[in-house]
């Protein structure tokens, strides 16, 4: 899906835990995530820290979208 959407010329960032798959299927902007059942969250953290974590990860994703890349790139 990532690739087909990007084919329209829209930058897309893939937030995924298994980044090797993300890379092999051809995502160009990748943000590694926490875990498969909760990619952008962490139930082990206190609520506030979890929100801060998610906030930071989404910020990273937005930064990825506004960064030029020439090949599959991970943003952390």
């Amino acid at each position: 899906m990532v690739k087909e959407i990007e084919r329209y010329g829209i930058p897309i960032v893939h937030m995924a835990t298994i980044t090797t798959i993300s890379k092999s299927v051809g995502a160009n902007r990748i943000v590694p995530t926490i875990a498969i059942p909760h990619p952008v969250g962490n139930p082990d953290l206190p609520a506030e820290e979890e929100l801060a974590l998610r906030r930071k990860m989404v910020k990273t994703a937005l930064e990825a979208l506004s960064t030029e890349v020439t090949e599959p790139t991970e943003f952390e």
Partner: peptide, 14 residues
């Protein structure tokens, strides 16, 4: 998304 003029996409996978 293209037709709606969306500028960027975040796609999350589990």
């Amino acid at each position: 998304l293209k037709e709606a003029g969306v500028d960027g996409v975040i796609l999350t996978s589990t």
